Simulated assay, not measured.
Amino acid sequence: MGNVIFVTMALDLAADPVELTAALVDVPSVSGNETALADAVEHALRAQARHLEVVRNGNAVLARTNLGRDSRVVLAGHLDTVPINHNLPLRRTGEGEDLVLHGCGTVDMKGGDAVMLHLAATVTEPRHDLTFVFYDCEEVEATRNGLGRIERELPEWLRGDLAVVCEPSNAVVEAGCQGSIRVEVSTNGRRAHTARAWMGVNAIHGAGEVLRRLAEYEARQVDIDGCVYREGLQAVRIGGGVASNVVPDECVVTVNHRFAPDRSPEQAEAHLREVFSGFDVRVTDMAGGALPGLAHPVAEEFAAAAGGKPVAKLGWTDVARFAALGMPAVNFGPGDPSLAHTREENVPAAHIRRCAEVLARFVSA
Results as ranks from 00 to 15, higher is better:
residue 3 N to L: 11
residue 3 N to M: 15
residue 7 V to S: 12
residue 7 V to N: 14
residue 8 T to W: 01
residue 8 T to L: 06
residue 13 L to V: 07
residue 16 D to P: 03
residue 19 E to K: 11
residue 19 E to F: 12
residue 23 A to Q: 09
residue 23 A to N: 06
residue 27 V to M: 15
residue 28 P to L: 08
residue 30 V to L: 05
residue 32 G to I: 12
residue 36 A to R: 10
residue 37 L to P: 07
residue 37 L to Q: 04
residue 40 A to W: 02
residue 42 E to D: 08
residue 43 H to R: 15
residue 44 A to R: 00
residue 49 A to R: 09
residue 50 R to Q: 14
residue 52 L to D: 07
residue 52 L to K: 12
residue 54 V to G: 13
residue 54 V to P: 03
residue 59 N to A: 14
residue 64 R to I: 10
residue 64 R to G: 01
residue 65 T to V: 07
residue 66 N to C: 14
residue 69 R to N: 12
residue 69 R to L: 11
residue 69 R to I: 02
residue 74 V to W: 07
residue 75 L to T: 03
residue 81 T to F: 00
residue 81 T to V: 03
residue 82 V to L: 11
residue 84 I to E: 02
residue 86 H to D: 11
residue 86 H to Q: 14
residue 90 L to Q: 03
residue 93 T to I: 00
residue 98 D to R: 12
residue 98 D to M: 04
residue 98 D to T: 04
residue 100 V to F: 00
residue 107 V to E: 10
residue 111 G to H: 05
residue 114 A to L: 01
residue 127 R to A: 08
residue 134 F to T: 09
residue 137 C to P: 01
residue 139 E to T: 11
residue 140 V to L: 02
residue 147 L to K: 05
residue 152 R to G: 01
residue 153 E to N: 15
residue 157 W to K: 09
residue 162 L to I: 09
residue 164 V to Y: 08
residue 166 C to H: 05
residue 169 S to L: 04
residue 170 N to A: 13
residue 176 G to Y: 10
residue 178 Q to W: 02
residue 180 S to P: 04
residue 181 I to V: 12
residue 182 R to H: 14
residue 184 E to Q: 14
residue 184 E to P: 02
residue 188 N to T: 13
residue 189 G to F: 04
residue 191 R to F: 10
residue 191 R to G: 11
residue 193 H to M: 13
residue 196 R to C: 12
residue 196 R to G: 11
residue 197 A to H: 05
residue 201 V to P: 09
residue 202 N to A: 03
residue 202 N to K: 07
residue 204 I to P: 02
residue 205 H to E: 13
residue 209 E to N: 13
residue 213 R to A: 06
residue 214 L to A: 13
residue 216 E to H: 10
residue 217 Y to S: 03
residue 223 D to F: 07
residue 225 D to R: 03
residue 230 R to E: 15
residue 231 E to M: 10
residue 237 R to L: 14
residue 237 R to H: 15
residue 240 G to K: 10
residue 244 S to K: 11
residue 247 V to M: 09
residue 248 P to A: 08
residue 254 T to H: 08
residue 255 V to N: 14
residue 257 H to M: 13
residue 260 A to M: 12
residue 260 A to E: 12
residue 261 P to D: 15
residue 261 P to M: 13
residue 265 P to H: 02
residue 272 L to C: 09
residue 274 E to K: 08
residue 274 E to T: 04
residue 275 V to E: 06
residue 276 F to V: 11
residue 277 S to N: 10
residue 282 R to P: 00
residue 290 A to T: 11
residue 290 A to V: 04
residue 291 L to N: 03
residue 293 G to C: 07
residue 294 L to C: 14
residue 294 L to A: 09
residue 295 A to W: 10
residue 296 H to F: 00
residue 300 E to W: 11
residue 300 E to C: 15
residue 301 E to K: 01
residue 302 F to Q: 10
residue 303 A to W: 06
residue 312 A to E: 04
residue 316 W to S: 04
residue 322 F to D: 02
residue 322 F to M: 04
residue 323 A to F: 06
residue 325 L to W: 04
residue 327 M to R: 01
residue 329 A to S: 11
residue 329 A to D: 05
residue 335 G to E: 08
residue 335 G to N: 08
residue 339 L to A: 14
residue 342 T to A: 09
residue 344 E to R: 10
residue 349 A to H: 01
residue 350 A to C: 05
residue 351 H to Y: 09
residue 354 R to C: 10
residue 357 E to L: 11
residue 360 A to I: 07
residue 360 A to Q: 13
residue 362 F to S: 02
residue 363 V to Q: 06
residue 364 S to L: 15
